[in-house]
Design a protein around this nucleic acid. Structure first.
Lengths: 384, 384
DNA sequence: GACGGACGTGCATACGTATTCATGGATGCT
DNA sequence: AGCATCCATGAATACGTATGCACGTCCGTC
């Protein structure tokens, strides 16, 4: 920071008094300086005007094939690269998308939720495929995060990523949209979302998980996860869970729902809370894999066997899920597809093409944590 | 892309024929258009010149406190944000760092090496703390990756991240440096590295892991990981491994080294290769956790118990390591610190402050995969 | 042979900010 | 009081590219 201001404004001698140059009149001042190579240099070398260079390199069809080749050759020779700042300034585009990452609830250490990491990977790759750069920023939900990207022209659009409730910040989002900021979010797809949202079918996913547990013979299935409005995704999963129960004629028991955020420690805590209630349960459906993994840890501390005493299912299918012991039954979100859809939707928004929120299908992945295998489950639910 | 060119160049009527404006003469043309708010608008509202606005907002000490307050108030009122493109164009800075991510060896699916994901997280946060943005790009080692960032002024410096050999690309790096590009890399810290490098003490880490296995009574320790020059980090770990053996008077057996890249599938494959050699072994030191996890999987397929028949140690301490069964003994790299150091070093480079490559200490994390616990290990090494 | 296009190119200029230089007024010193 | 300073500010301009417009030039057509 301290040494920032270094360069001078040389070559004031040009010709006019204005910000204007003629192709040929530039070289003279450049001979000895090793300043940046600009489109004027290319123009001179290729024997055309700067304007033509710009057009040629951008693939403007009005440039003849012959000229284009000459320009490209000159550019290669001088190892020229378009100055993105100037280009963006002029074109009012950035060629960049911003990914805002909300990790509000669990700022424990630097550990990012693995599911989001996976999303990050796929978003990055989707951007690359589309020729866009990706600007990443971790944010806390509290602050004035909006101001710094679209408005400062650093990005053409914004992707919002994070569990949580965008509705709480609806007014802020509205303000952004009013300014013409393009944004898409990942989350629960609901009619009242304040912006284009891509998300998985959390409801069906939750239903599928619970149906599977019911199929395994479980009858008292605990739900670990915040079912409040503030976590719409969890709420949807919970709704799916409830519906599955009701369809099978089981009356949901509020005592079997425990709030939890998406972290192992929270899952561990939730399980202890559940046990403290002394409610019998024979299965756990956790609203995220991290919660499930935390719960499994706590169960094993209590000497309770998974899956023989308590079956467990999670949600997300993070990489870790297949490596815990026992491997975790879970509902898989297709992060690759999700990342692609987020980027595609945002680009469509940017290009003023029609876009709609979309819900992606999910897939139940059955692993050992919910399976009896050979050993039959005890007849009555386990007493806590 | 198709609708990119939309806006017109309005307001040509200004005054002169040049790229020049006077503070007051602007508002007239703005009244009806909802164009971008510029520093001229702020200037007008605050009753100062555009130059003063720029200075005030950048914290130039030559602006009086009174004026600064007025300018800031005006900026807040109009919800003004500096246009980064214009600012960067003028100042020749970007306020952005680029993270180039080389995932060459394992392009399987979209799964990024978890260790690098962890690094990514810590680098992102370190950047945020320093007030820099982070541009992320996945690259394949083959191509002309260098051209697109520093040269195009999108980033002030570059961080290189990836297992692999930068030496292979030394000429390219050299070319970059000759152009004044600032870059730092993560990797093996060795005197012949072509650029500032931050890395862990792979040698000591490798030695520590092998010493630990020796302490457990293992005598025929297989090394899974590419020991060639192309993976300097693995090579260093291997060297540490060898040194530990020799110090204890054990003659290394080449038959116990199997090449592997950092992925589970590669680890699985390497183990099968090892078994095919019919060499007895009682422990495995894998050059990365992913390799170790793959190997454990393959071992269990063969009905070989870990750790009772074969002890296993990995490297990296990725999150998954503590959740596999059995939990994996490994050598921990402090990714948080590493990310900070990378960013700090790069910033020092950018600010022309002295910097040196640095090696970070590592820490052996002992978990169950390498421990006998109560059960004593069989006297003779296992026959494959 | 004249005319209407289409095509390819150059000219001039704007994008919004940062910075150099000049200026006028206040301040300090003798 | 007179002069040298310093301070705060304004005026002018460059950063490098993209693009509206105008100007040939080379056709084919009647």
């Amino acid at each position: 920071m301290s040494i920032v201001a270094r360069q001078r404004d040389p070559n004031l001698a040009s010709i006019g008094t204005c910000d204007r140059r003629v192709a040929g009149s530039r070289g003279r001042f450049r001979v000895h300086s090793k300043k940046r190579i600009t489109s004027f240099d290319i123009a001179e070398l290729a024997g055309v005007s700067q304007a033509t260079v710009s057009r040629a390199l951008r693939g403007d069809p009005s440039v003849s094939e012959d000229t284009r080749r000459r320009v490209e050759a000159a550019a290669t020779t001088l190892n020229y690269t378009v100055d993105k700042n100037a280009s963006n300034l002029r074109s009012k585009l950035a060629g960049t998308l911003a990914l805002l990452f909300f990790d509000d609830p669990t700022p424990d250490d630097s550990h990012i939720n693995p599911f989001f990491l996976s999303m990050l990977g796929s978003i990055t790759q989707a951007c690359a495929r589309q020729g866009y750069d990706l600007l990443i920023s971790f944010q806390e939900l509290g602050r004035d995060w909006h101001a710094d990207f679209a408005e400062s022209k650093k990005a053409d659009g914004i992707i919002l990523l994070g569990y949580g409730d965008y509705l709480t910040h609806a007014s802020r989002l509205e303000k952004l949209r009013a300014k013409g900021t393009r944004l898409v979010s990942w989350g629960a797809v609901r009619p009242d979302q304040p912006c284009i949202t891509i998300g998985c079918d959390n409801f069906s996913g939750g239903r599928a998980a619970t149906e599977h547990l019911l199929d395994q013979g479980c009858r008292r299935i605990a739900f670990l996860g915040d079912a409040s409005r503030h976590f719409p995704e969890f709420q949807e999963r919970y709704r799916g869970h409830l519906q599955a129960l009701r369809t099978r004629g089981i009356v949901p028991d509020d005592a079997l729902q425990v709030d939890a955020e998406s972290s192992q420690s929270s899952g561990r805590l939730a399980l202890k809370t559940l046990m403290a209630r002394a409610e019998p349960f024979d299965a756990i459906f956790a609203a995220s894999d991290l919660i499930a993994i935390g719960a499994i840890g706590a169960l094993s501390e209590h000497g309770i066997d998974v899956p023989f005493e308590v079956a467990v299912a999670g949600f997300d299918d993070i990489p870790m899920a297949s490596y815990v012991n026992p491997p975790l039954t879970t509902v898989q979100q297709d992060t690759r597809r999700a990342g692609e859809m987020l980027v595609d939707s945002l680009l469509r928004l940017i290009h003023n093409e029609p876009v709609a929120s979309r819900m992606l299908p999910m897939k139940l992945i059955v692993r050992r944590s919910s399976l009896w295998q050979e050993v039959p489950r005890a007849e009555s639910p386990r007493e806590a």
